[in-house]
């Protein structure tokens, strides 16, 4: 029962994803108003030849800060999980 429901809903979701894939702009011809600005102005505004690095560290810097924070959070979480505790019992 549960497996049947899961199978049917999975099929529907995948069908809609395929519809999405067909409706998205043709591969290789994206709209590019924002990116054209970045490609044109990256050297003038940030001084970096690498437009990706300019996006990562300048235009979308807060994303990168957040990403670094996520890594920091995950490390803190992993270290926290494996910390030593008094009264630790296995099983």
């Amino acid at each position: 029962m549960r497996r049947v429901a899961a199978g049917i809903s999975l099929t529907i979701v995948i069908a809609f994803l395929a519809v999405t894939a067909l409706l998205v702009h043709p591969f290789g011809h994206p709209p590019a108003q924002m990116d054209d600005y970045i490609i044109k102005n990256t050297q003038r505004e940030t001084g970096a030849n690498n437009a990706v690095a300019a996006v990562v560290f300048d235009y979308r810097g807060l994303d990168t800060l957040g990403e670094a924070t996520i890594l920091f959070t995950a490390v803190a979480g992993v270290v926290m999980l494996f910390r030593k505790r008094e009264g630790e019992t296995t099983r």
Partner: peptide, 23 residues
């Protein structure tokens, strides 16, 4: 040139994926 922003987004999302997987 190809678009730079999706590459930056993908980079971000890959690092997030690594963090989540490790955790």
């Amino acid at each position: 040139m190809v678009l730079p922003v999706p590459q930056a987004l993908t980079l971000t999302s890959i690092v997030i994926g690594v963090a989540i997987t490790a955790f």
